[in-house]
């Protein structure tokens, strides 16, 4: 019943956000990630998937199982082809919002996972990669 190691989930609607959370939860459970870290991971997925949908105009979440010195983890890559983020440092600050009342939640998501990386190209899109170890 182990899930395939590599899967790409579209994020084009609110329903997709819910689906992305469910899939991430299933993987985290399979890897034996504890309940608290599971909840942190799935919450980060919710924040990042919503960013992709609301700010990036839709995109994808890629799931990979990674391992390091016998320890397994889940790596999720969120990609969109939206407007990009001109000032990443500013966007990472708590409470930063684009004005429609939805904070980007990037800073928060970073605190919820073990590894966090963000790249953005203005006019071309944004890619966020997170890792949670078991």
């Amino acid at each position: 019943m182990t899930p395939p190691g590599n899967e790409r989930v579209p994020i084009q609607s609110e329903d997709d956000i819910v689906r992305a959370r469910r899939i991430a939860r299933t993987y985290a459970q399979e890897l034996g990630i504890g309940l608290t870290n599971q909840t942190k991971l799935v919450t980060a997925v919710s924040e990042l998937a919503r960013n992709v949908y609301v700010h990036g105009g839709g995109g994808t979440m890629q799931i990979e199982i990674v391992s390091n010195r016998g320890n397994q983890g889940i790596r999720l890559t969120f990609e969109d082809h939206g407007p990009g983020i001109p000032d990443i440092n500013l966007a990472m600050q708590d409470g930063y919002t684009t004005g429609n009342g939805l904070g980007l939640g990037l800073g928060g998501a970073k605190r919820l996972v073990h590894e966090f990386e963000i790249e953005s190209w203005v006019g071309r899109g944004t890619r966020v990669t997170i890792v949670m170890w078991a």
């Binding site: 599971q38 942190k40 928060g108």
Partner: peptide, 14 residues
């Protein structure tokens, strides 16, 4: 509120 949810919200800074 479940403990894991509470811990996560605190970590999020909410």
């Amino acid at each position: 509120m479940q403990p894991a949810v509470a811990i996560t919200l605190v970590e999020l800074g909410l």
